[in-house]
Design a protein around this nucleic acid. Structure first.
Lengths: 153, 153
DNA sequence: CTCATGTATGTGTATATACACCTTTATAGA
DNA sequence: TCTATAAAGGTGTATATACACATACATGAG
């Protein structure tokens, strides 16, 4: 009769409480709900707002490059674009190279972004102030460090 | 002709780079992929492993209480249980009160958890060491602080 | 005992995510 | 020129997430 892993390490279950992934997912759920709630008046989700903001910054961008900048799976981006295209906020055009899809903001997309900005700021401030400026800055630094850690592999 | 929000605040787009939600979601995507990849040999996703680990800790638990502990929407939990029930790792029973669903680990669920533990540890170590013990601890503290901030509303 | 109300849960729908696999289009060699 | 390969993208499928709405059951007021 061999001992189970749990009998050998009774603290194993406690360790799992410290799971980086589980804690991240939990925070992500909660924080996403805060931003989604703030942005609801303009009909955007947090993900969609970020996608639009990235396009404002980059200008017209090929799909794969956009996915690279967002550090997002290409096929996820394709799916995320759909509701925005349906709403007329984003346009997808071709280039000479028929393989390449150029993602652009429409005029309405730009307007909606401007409308959404104050609502985004509201959510952002709420969290920055809730955690405190300094601690929030450190937290953001750590998020970026974590990105480096994972991507460096 | 009124100025646009962007013309008034040319740094608005740069601010959005610091979006707590966007950065969290990005890290969450990457970290989830690390844990999913580690756990693939045992056929569990990070979310599923965490769900099982929580059940190991709590024992048989009513659905809504489990959702509360996980800080997860009740309906999300229902959906997340399905693949685990299908695989026979989790069972859903009734109580005397016919409304209540009791979620339990099956014997096979317990076995799979034990098999999964070393793979979880591998992913966990990878991130703890990548970020450094101290910084990782601070990061986890901040995640928990962020949970408090959001829940305190 | 009966019904109004509250509690526990499920379903419909939409989005977010990503892996495996497939199609289309360029391009570099032979 | 022709073709093998690489590059860019899409689709099928499965999971993760949550809001709005619907259902079933329990319980207390009368």
């Amino acid at each position: 009769m061999s001992q189970t892993e749990l009998e050998k390490s009774p603290h194993a279950v406690l360790d799992v409480v410290n799971c980086t992934s589980a804690n991240l997912r939990k925070v992500n759920r909660l924080v996403t709900q805060v931003y989604d709630a703030s942005l609801r008046p303009v009909g955007l989700r947090a993900t969609q707002f970020n996608l639009i903001a990235t396009l404002v910054k980059l200008g017209d961008t090929p799909l794969s490059r956009l996915a690279g900048v967002l550090v997002m799976d290409r096929t996820t981006l394709t799916r995320n674009l759909k509701p925005l295209v349906d709403k007329g906020l984003i346009r997808i055009d071709h280039e000479e190279d028929q393989r390449i899809r150029i993602i652009s903001l429409t005029d309405e997309g730009k307007i909606v972004f401007e409308e959404a900005l104050p609502f985004w700021r509201e959510a952002q401030s709420q969290l920055v102030e809730g955690l405190g400026q300094n601690r929030w800055s450190a937290f953001l630094d750590d998020l970026r460090a974590m990105i480096d850690v994972v991507q460096r592999e």
